[in-house]
């Protein structure tokens, strides 16, 4: 019999029809525009690094993503970051990549994360080891993003492991997937998302969007298939620090598509960093107007301090009061 129950940060009793007790699911299901952001993981064993980095994001974010060695570069683990975020009262999205762990390790981590109070999981295939700082590592890819979604969905809904063995207390998790509308084959991408939804995806965070025309074409197909009603789509955005940084990203980060026009605009600006920020605000405003888009996911690598301003300037939070999670709400303001 449990004598003592630990309550973490953003835990609410799940509402009817909700799978988790988390803030992100509440915000999305209540019809509000959601904001998530990526936390740049430290190369450090100091928890203070996480608290500092989370603090600058927390005021405008409904959940903070803890990346899982993205780009195949080694950093603090996503589970470790999530545990620290939860302990500090933040809502976390634990990213799971299939590159580094097999099905046994992943299912164990899912239970561990749920026990720590993590409510959201983003299921990813992961970049190849060749992209990272340790290209000689063994690539695992025992599961892929779709079988990972299906596995966690069965753990939650059917209360069983992949083997069929029963889980006594199933994890209550809001399941996410990635989508990249900007990589070929373009006509496949909506169908791939449909497959992910069938496998259990409830929310989607896309790759960086710098090409709104392409996103519009993708979203139009998504709406034709009714997929925007079957999952919550958050479009990935981020400020580019300079034209040089944009070029580097385009050629070194797998799956990132940056049109020449964007790079030219940065090159022509007196203050490229400021222009990158302005571009990001404009993109968010345009993207938020597209039917079926339910939020944005901000990836401001090494520019996290800009996220707060970017979201405020974009006006997407409208009458929601930006506030530090866990702080006292402003009287009269609409909050979750």
């Amino acid at each position: 019999m449990s004598v003592h129950r630990i309550e973490f940060g953003d835990s609410y009793p799940p509402l009817p029809g909700h799978v988790s007790g988390g803030r992100l699911e509440r915000v999305l299901r209540s019809g509000r525009f959601a904001v998530t952001a990526e936390l740049n993981p430290p190369d450090s064993a100091d928890p203070e690094e996480i608290y500092q980095r989370a603090l600058v994001l927390s005021e405008v974010c409904d959940a903070i993503n803890a990346t899982d060695a993205s780009g195949a570069n080694c950093h603090m683990s996503s589970l470790g970051i999530c545990a620290l975020l939860k302990a500090a009262g933040y809502s976390a999205v634990m990213q799971i990549s299939c590159r580094d762990r097999n099905r046994i390790a992943i299912q164990g981590d899912v239970l561990g994360a749920a026990a720590l109070g993590v409510h959201n999981v983003l299921c990813l295939t992961g970049d190849g080891v060749e992209a990272g700082d340790q290209p000689g590592a063994k690539p695992v890819f025992d599961l892929d993003s779709i079988t990972l979604l299906d596995t966690i969905r069965a753990m939650r809904d059917e209360g069983r492991f992949l083997s069929g063995r029963v889980i006594e207390s199933p994890p209550r998790l809001f399941l996410g997937a990635a989508a990249n509308p900007f990589a070929p084959p373009f006509d496949w991408r909506p169908r791939r998302l449909a497959k992910k939804i069938a496998a259990g995806a409830q929310f989607v965070q896309t790759q960086y969007c710098f090409d709104v025309a392409r996103l519009r074409a993708f979203m139009s197909e998504i709406r034709d298939g009714g997929l925007h009603k079957a999952c919550f789509i958050l479009v990935g955005v981020g400020p580019l620090a300079s034209a040089r940084a944009a070029r580097w990203m385009r050629s070194n980060v797998p799956g990132v598509h940056i049109p020449d026009s964007v790079i030219q605009r940065l090159e022509g600006a007196a203050d490229q960093r400021q222009e990158g920020k302005r571009l990001c605000v404009e993109l968010i405003q345009e993207i938020s107007e597209i039917e079926g888009v339910r939020g944005v996911h901000v990836m401001a690598y090494r520019q996290e301090e800009l996220v707060n301003d970017i979201i405020r300037d974009s006006g997407v939070l409208k009458n929601r009061a930006p506030r530090a999670q866990g702080a006292e709400p402003t009287p009269g303001a609409e909050i979750i």
Binding site: T125, T147, A183, P254
Partner: peptide, 18 residues
């Protein structure tokens, strides 16, 4: 990556593997 459920998001603009 041995993917059996479709392409990853890393496909290059020219259609080649990441």
């Amino acid at each position: 990556k041995g993917l059996r459920n479709g392409p990853c998001g890393g496909v290059r603009a020219n259609g080649n593997c990441e």
